[in-house]
Design a protein around this nucleic acid. Structure first.
Lengths: 150, 150
DNA sequence: GACTGGTACTTGCATGAGCAACTATATCAG
DNA sequence: CTGATATAGTTGCTCATGCAAGTACCAGTC
């Protein structure tokens, strides 16, 4: 049984927590820089394009897209799609079924770019994160995330 | 041996990686909101005040402070300390040894606030993160972070 | 078919952040 | 001591973001 002094974490708790913060910050910064360098894309832009790439017909309703993103508000998504549209990677199509709705849809340029970016990104994730961990460690990380999510 | 198809991660790798992203985003958002609610402090502001609280004489050179922070540039720190100074939580003192340097130093109001905020924050970390994990899981997380950091 | 309330998305505004350029001071070579 | 270079910190500019308010549309009620 761990003693739980109020307002103090055990060294183990601290290591687990601050380690995640440090690792997350470091790795995400590297991956962001790599993506920027290789494809002139931020990590958030990449995320959006990725969801579209994996969606049927490479299109998703704005609101569905917003729901999938961990890290962007609805208005943030509006403006991010604005930018992607200006860059010719995405187009907005009004929804036939719902007069209020819009689809964001990959253009072929967007499809090409994100396919290449995915290779860069996944290679980066492997290089800077998963390749350093043994299979058992990967499994216990995954288990930990499940538990924390309840 | 894990097969490593270029540009594709195994499901285990994906779970470990995306789980960290999701957990980090979720927990940090909660902790930030709690701190904001209880003490009108953002997580970054809290971090800065924390380092000062733990420093000798509750003061640190701006540059030392910037080096400790995972998540803020030097100019970002300048402006963050500006805000903390305006709120009366911190004061800037010129360095006696180095004419270019400044110390950021906690005021007594700052000391009081961050002491209270620390209790809130650590309780939050425990509640939303570490308490859900068994001791062994905490240890293997910590070990994983060490490995990833090389 | 007009009201009512809800949903989809966008926009006005304010804010926090980084980069690069700047000022002031330190340090070092000769 | 002088000039060259580096370091500490700040500031101008630009940009991405969130919140709250706005517009347009949908669905249900009478």
């Amino acid at each position: 049984m761990v003693r739980t002094v109020p307002g103090v974490l055990t060294p183990r708790e601290l290591d687990a927590w601050r380690g995640m913060l440090a690792t997350h910050a470091r790795v995400v910064a590297i991956l962001d820089a790599e993506l920027q360098e290789a494809h002139d894309l931020s990590l958030v832009e990449y995320e959006v394009l990725m969801y579209l790439l994996d969606a049927p017909a490479n299109r998703l309703r704005m609101s569905d897209l917003a729901d999938e993103l961990l890290v962007l508000s609805r208005s943030g998504l509006t403006r991010l799609v604005d930018r992607l549209e200006r860059s010719g990677l995405v187009s907005r199509e009004p929804s036939a079924e719902d007069g209020r709705g819009f689809y964001a849809e990959l253009t072929s340029a967007g499809r090409n770019l994100v396919s290449a970016a995915r290779r860069t990104h996944l290679a980066g994730v492997r290089q800077h994160f998963t390749s350093k961990l043994a299979t058992g460690q990967l499994a216990s990380l995954a288990a930990a995330w499940r538990v924390v999510a309840e």
